[in-house]
Simulated scan of single mutants.
Amino acid sequence: MTSDVIAPAAVSAQEREALAEAIRDLVARRADSASARAAMRATPRIDRGLWQTLCAEIGVSALPIPEDAGGAGASFAETAAVLEELGRSLSPVPVFATALATAAILISGDDEAIAGLLPPIASGERIATVCWAGRDGWDRPGVHADGGLLSGTADYVIDGESADLLLVLAGSGDGTTLHAVDADADGVTVTPLPVVDPSRPLARIDFDEAPAGTIASGPDLPGRLRTHARALLAAEQVGGAAAALDLTVDYTKSRKQFGRIIGSFQALKHRMADMYASVETARSISRAAVSAIVTGDPAADDLAAAAHVYCSEAFARVAGEGIQLHGGIGITAEHDIQLYFKRAHGSAQLFGQPHEVIAELSRRLLA
């Protein structure tokens, strides 16, 4: 086993911004609202064309993967920049799920798994996701391992219906262990779930004595993976909040009431200024959390938890204000602002709800 702290290639802030602009341009050309909505209704719920383009032209799945495993040798800071842009469009592509699976493999430090599993992920040939949560959430896996066989149910699996490779956190006599299994393996049943947020496909995956490879990992894997998950999700939430703000500003520039553009009303200007402040402060804490992970800062866990709480609440607040400032049209299925409202509240349920994370941080302080 080796450490997952692999020195990434130096990427400047200017290069990272150029990457974000490339994603923004690609999404503008290939993933408008109509195509995103069509993908949300597809089976499976994925914009496969956009996913393949993102992997082939920009290499999004390869970014945090070391060069000797077929990757770009960058870092999760670049992945976060991609997720922030994709959070703006709500395009159903499995970038977040695959990044989390990549993090699980890297954190394990298992050289054989890194060499065998990461190259097809880096190329985009395989879509990977993490099976982690039990029915009650992410504190206790819903799957158990016994003699190399997996049994039980993983709930809330992100992009589970389109994944080829499943990274499974399972309870065992040794605590929590990590396993790799093909999604079409014997004993694996994938059930797409109905969701309030159509832009975030979730699945339930049942394992009935499914044979799986065991990936050597340490006892700190679940905690470190949760830190990555919260920080990367926060970046995506910032993008969603920024898009909700942009939609609201654009709407208030065109909507007239009492013979005036409603964006000229002082009260609405103040509300949108508060929304802008929420987005920018969320962006700051999100980037601080991601930076702490990349640099190995001991405060990464606390920063990621704080980012999860703040960005979840900021996104929900901005999307909620956006709904109100749009008026009646904001609650119709035809307008995109309601999609951001659903994404905001759905994302806040992942990896611990904000009030649960606050309680977790409080227990740490009192310990």
Rank of each mutant, 00 (worst) to 15 (best):
H228L: 08
V195P: 00
K342P: 01
D301H: 14
T129E: 04
A234G: 03
T176Y: 13
Q257P: 00
L19N: 09
I329K: 10
E17A: 14
A69I: 00
S12V: 01
A103H: 07
L247I: 05
L86Y: 02
L350F: 11
P141R: 04
A101E: 05
I205C: 04
A210R: 03
L83I: 02
S172P: 03
R224V: 12
M40P: 01
E85M: 09
G218N: 08
L365D: 09
F265Q: 08
A244W: 10
A103E: 07
S35C: 05
D164P: 00
R204S: 10
G73E: 10
G70S: 11
R16V: 07
A304Y: 11
R271P: 00
R41E: 15
D246E: 15
A367E: 13
G124W: 00
L169F: 09
I329W: 12
A231T: 12
E360L: 13
P198F: 03
K256E: 15
S35A: 13
F341Y: 13
H270Q: 08
L169P: 09
G87P: 05
K269N: 02
S108Y: 12
H144V: 13
L247Y: 06
R363I: 11
T252Q: 11
V143M: 07
T295H: 06
M1R: 10
A113R: 01
G328E: 10
A307F: 09
D206N: 11
E236A: 11
A231N: 12
H335T: 14
A288W: 03
G124Y: 01
G218F: 07
I105Y: 06
H144L: 06
P8Q: 06
D68L: 03
A180S: 15
T2R: 15
L150Y: 08
G59T: 00
A212H: 08
V181C: 11
V27Q: 01
V249S: 12
G213T: 12
L245Y: 09
H144P: 01
G70T: 13
G223S: 13
S61F: 01
A277R: 13
